[in-house]
Amino acid sequence: MSTSDPLAGTAAARHPEPRRSLLVCALVGAAVMAGVDEIVFHQLLHWHHFYDRSTSGVALVSDGLLHTAELLALVAGLFLFADLRRRGALVPGHAWSGAFLGAGVFQVFDGIVDHKVLRVHQVRYGVDVTPYDWAWNLAGLALLVIGGVLLARARRAGGRRPS
């Protein structure tokens, strides 16, 4: 936390906001996961296809909306995070838990809704996709579990802290 904070010492400052810390970092976590998906699987590995011929119109629109929302979420999330830090309202435990939960929710959503329900594109082409789908969704689940454990720990720590 910066010591040159103009609000330091005022009554409004240094009031921790665990809920907001969690939500803001969930936004950042989801957006970062989406960025990893775009950079690693689309650009570096070329596993995902830019356009899958079986993509329906609805899937195309949902993909466009989600892709744009990811970009805006990354920008908005980082500035909301900076605002939390500026006010000294960031609670690190809840923030980390939020980041993992957000990343996990995105991964599972991408794996089930985008890949399987809407069929925007598959994890990989020209191979049996089943193990890839399992790995994809279990990785998402693992992120969710880590986020859940961190949240439970953060809540316990918050409860112990004298307020």
């Binding site: 830019f50 993509t55 195309l60 629109v61 466009g64 909306l65 892709h67 744009t68 929302a69 805006l72």
Partner: peptide
């Protein structure tokens, strides 16, 4: 958001 999505859909 809406304009960006419309642009992305058109591109795809």
């Amino acid at each position: 958001l809406a304009a960006g999505a419309a642009h992305a859909v058109l591109a795809k």
